[in-house]
Design a binder for these strands. Structure first.
Lengths: 204, 204
DNA sequence: CCCTACCGGAGGAGGTTCCTCCGTTTGTCG
DNA sequence: CGACAAACGGAGGAACCTCCTCCGGTAGGG
């Protein structure tokens, strides 16, 4: 593989990730190519198909999320801080925006599946540690964390400045994290939020 | 105005509100008409224009939000409970999804503007009361509440069952509300979130 | 220096949505 | 009860957007 081809592939992945963060996974491919400073044909040469690009981006950013989890666990002094840092780090990537919007065809692809399982394992470990430490509310479930990140990562309005959006997202996430810590808050409404229960929420 | 015409107008407003909640304000008008059990021509007869429907729905749901705020203030025993109840009530309408997505053409229309100001005044009163009561964190700003509601109101994934989505939204909002109450949480990141600062976040 | 891998952009095809036109139905008032 | 006006329904042309391919041009690397 030639040097410029590899560099361009990386640029495309990066541009796709940012575009998905702002517009969602239905963003026009032209917009991604333009953002990468490349022609549309180059995009199609590297990723023969729309879903191929989605798969590549998903695998890429899931690996980054897994690494963020490992880093947080290694470097933070306590389990709650690790969980908080992990959430803030993941918020800056496109995982929370991208993953729930992916269809089964992408999510079940082997390369994505493996990365997803690994990232989920790290996240689960962060949560279990914080619960064992006694600092994370026991009624907060695994899926609550990921879905909440989705809520905070998505832009409020299309015409907001991306930097301002990011600052706002971190601010609101921090407000949310306050509510995660054990304290005198009452119990949560709704049933326990298992992964199976989440799957059954899909209507068709 | 004939009786059936008035009934259908109400059905259209209701269908539009629900459709906007699920798909956002760019939802096809055909989908709204179909959901109301009416033909597309009927929709265009009542609201000559796409934005006319948006204006009508916005004015309608903002009035409902204002009423919800008044109700909460009147019926709840303390200011924090009133704020919480208000947030949960508003979450069930389409205000949080619709308002940030509206362009200036709709938001500045007189009929919308008046309702928006009134609804904002009630929300501000709920927040001020809770701060005066000492139960709401002083670093939580007016705009935080509205924008957070937007985050919780938007559906996670398009193919989730609406009822399950709603339950999840209330669950996560409750988690968030925990973090709003005064306690030993640290300060929030980012600058104070004024309405002016919010306006300046729009990029073009 | 040259060959080959790589790049760019125009453009046809397919799909989606808007909004109007006109024949048909239905409420309501004398 | 009957007639008139008001309201309804759905097909369809027009405009728009996005996907993906084709082919001539460019530049890395041995």
């Amino acid at each position: 593989m030639r040097a410029d081809a590899e560099r361009n592939r990386g640029r495309l992945l990066d541009a796709a990730c940012r575009t998905y963060m702002e517009q969602g996974p239905d963003a026009p491919l032209d917009a991604i190519a333009r953002r990468a400073g490349l022609g549309i044909a180059t995009l199609y040469r590297h990723f023969g198909d729309r879903t191929a690009l989605l798969r590549a981006v998903a695998a890429d950013v899931l690996a980054a999320a897994e690494a963020a989890g490992d880093r947080a666990r290694a470097e933070e002094p306590d389990a709650f801080s690790a969980l908080r840092r992990y959430m803030h780090d993941v918020l800056d990537g496109c995982v929370p925006v991208l993953m729930p919007a992916l269809g089964p065809a992408v999510r079940e692809a082997p390369e994505v599946r493996a990365r997803l399982d690994a990232a989920a394992a790290v996240q689960r470990r962060l949560i279990d540690d914080a619960k064992a430490e006694g600092t994370l509310h026991p009624d907060v479930e695994f899926a609550d964390i990921g879905l909440a990140l989705t809520r905070f990562a998505r832009p409020i309005a299309g015409d907001f400045d991306p930097a301002a959006e990011a600052a706002l997202a971190h601010r609101h996430l921090e407000l949310f994290v306050r509510g995660l810590r054990t304290g005198d808050g009452a119990g949560l409404p709704g049933p326990a939020l298992t992964l199976g229960g989440l799957r059954s929420m899909r209507s068709p």
